[in-house]
Design a protein around this nucleic acid. Structure first.
Lengths: 349, 349
DNA sequence: TTCGTGGTGGAGAACGTTACACACAGCCTT
DNA sequence: AAGGCTGTGTGTAACGTTCTCCACCACGAA
């Protein structure tokens, strides 16, 4: 725009420059880059030094046109959920030493936005996708998975189109119910996210969690005490659910929430209603995020080994990307109860 | 690998298909896609319907070879920092209606890893970069910014190589000190991240914050009571700093931390030492993250308007990407004190 | 009629990389 | 000595876009 003499940004070093500098063909350099078959040690040496001397880095866009982009996309709805951060750490750690780069799309909760983000990733020729509890329709995910290696974390719906990593949420719910029953509680309510929203996923984490809760309650002969409330997994969502639940005539003595952050909302509601925790109400979260461990919170929660889930997902994905496996697989993690100060024996029973 | 008849994934729709289907040239379709000059309404119409009918989506890798990729990269060290989530929200919202996609790289705290991630983004031909408080060396960032439009969030070092968005951290520190002094405190300590690590940034947020703290203390005639402790911005870092600080013979009556999460670590230390908050110790965080607002926490903190910072950064970046501005600019936000239950008047003074 | 002129559409050369096909050399079998 | 491998290196056609010309047309002015 009229600036005097825009300083010509010196052109990037390309594979051709490397080839010339090393005195070999472009094809040879490409082979070394991809460590493909048919390269002698001498050639390796020559090319590698040339690359180092010129500080050459391959351009992913050009690679993407024929081969791989060495990019893995991770879709998640929202960065605030600390559990996702654990998963991310696992993914990153697994891929740190590889030549793949992880790029994250934080699409928000809107299924359409998520779908748009997934398409963006496909359009950018990413080699593989990890979708964390996608809200997008099942059909959309299956279509994507047909063309790009994909791992879905969270949803229990099995398929041979993509790999899956799940937590045994039903077992997790059972652990919580057992713990609370052992403390003498009988009126145990569950606050979970609304189930499937007609997007064809039949076994979301929430659905499985709820099923696990119900069956555990039945196992203890408490089927008629089952109380399920739906709420968004946020502080506000938990607060609203808490206000409803705790002012009900059939007020539960213990509440379990499907996410720590929702449990804290319930905490706030209890506080507002003058109920003490754990004396008047036992409260259990889910995911054992850093939140739960805070000194001032001390929330009993269920640990999901997010780190391990992430690294497993990454490992499985790379196997697929590199064609070392051609059949779908599903990995399931066993949750573990972490007891803290928010649960206590039912008093005056 | 011996699988029977790998189902040929039906090839993607390309610009050539669209051109053929619409009965026009490839060049014309390209023009419509980029809404370039020299396209008649009729042509627009024809091409757009063809695109819709074939469900065509341009392939970013191919675009990247000649023109833009319509991708914006955001670098941050760690997803757990809730303040970054606010910034991200701002960025996403600003870009939601545009044709740009935001991809996030969470590189961790290691400067080398961060540099690697920045390079990855450049290699992927991203159109623009937003770097949130990068730990990478200044030289590296300047070199990147010379070739790719870049906005740096956090660091106050001015330059004409890239745009900047900062919070007036010195003012923020002043607000806190004023507040605490008004409550009668005189021994006010600061816990902040270690300053510049020889990576050539002279005015990181920590440095500016510390300077603001010092000058506010001087302004109140408390220069000799200045006490600065360095700690990582994490629960553990805060805890360690807290243990040192609170067992010192010159124990402060108030502590301000450069990040909420560190404040919570100090909280834990205080708790462990039998100190009550706010009766025995006033505590102030920074960033006013969701953590600070939790019912069980109620931490006085400084709000940084992360959302606005993010949307400003995005807007500034797009201006540069699209060549609508060719001079660097710097945006500064004014922080605001949010008083909660963790600060109180000095008792028995 | 002739000449410009502005507005549209198209041809075709990049862009940097991969992957296919082939050439060549050296060695082992017969 | 002929033939067949095997292991290495190279030439070159893609890949799907963008973007720089260039051609064409219609129209108005001289």
């Amino acid at each position: 725009m009229g600036g005097s003499a825009t300083p010509k940004q010196n052109k990037r070093v390309t594979i051709t420059d490397v080839a010339r500098h090393a005195g070999v063909s472009v094809a040879a350099v490409s082979k070394v880059l991809r460590n493909a078959y048919g390269v002698s040690p001498g050639m390796q040496e020559k090319v590698r030094t040339a690359i180092a001397e010129l500080d050459y880095r391959p351009q992913a866009a050009a690679r993407g046109m024929r081969g791989r982009t060495y990019t893995i996309g991770v879709l998640l709805d929202n960065v605030r959920n600390a559990f996702f951060a654990d998963i991310l750490d696992g993914i990153q750690e697994e891929l740190r030493t590889s030549e793949y780069t992880v790029l994250i799309g934080a699409a928000g909760f809107d299924p359409d936005e998520q779908a748009k983000t997934i398409r963006s990733m496909v359009d950018r020729q990413m080699d593989g996708l990890i979708l964390i509890a996608p809200g997008t329709s099942r059909a959309e995910v299956l279509a994507t998975a047909a063309a790009t290696p994909t791992v879905v974390i969270g949803h229990h719906d099995g398929t041979d189109a993509h790999d899956s990593v799940v937590d045994a949420d039903d077992t997790g719910a059972g652990l919580v119910v057992d713990h609370l029953v052992a403390l003498g509680h009988r009126d145990i309510a569950l606050v979970s996210a609304p189930g499937t929203k007609a997007n064809q996923w039949k076994r979301t984490p929430e659905v499985v969690l709820t099923a696990g809760y119900r069956s555990a309650m039945e196992r203890h002969g408490l089927a008629e005490r089952v109380q399920v409330h739906h709420a968004a997994y946020s502080d506000e969502g938990g607060f609203k659910a808490g206000m409803t639940l705790l002012t009900d005539e059939r007020r539960p003595t213990a509440v379990m929430a499907g996410a720590d952050v929702a449990a804290l909302g319930i905490y706030r509601a209890a506080h507002e209603l003058g109920l003490r925790i754990p004396e008047d109400l036992s409260l259990v979260g889910y995911n054992n995020t850093a939140l739960a461990a805070l000194a001032t919170v001390q929330l009993t929660s269920v640990d999901q080994a997010g780190h391990t889930m992430g690294s497993s997902a990454a490992r499985m994905l790379i196997e697929r990307v590199e064609g070392r496996r051609d059949r779908a697989m599903q990995t399931s993690m066993t949750p573990r109860l972490v007891v803290r100060g928010s649960t206590a024996a039912l008093s005056g029973s």
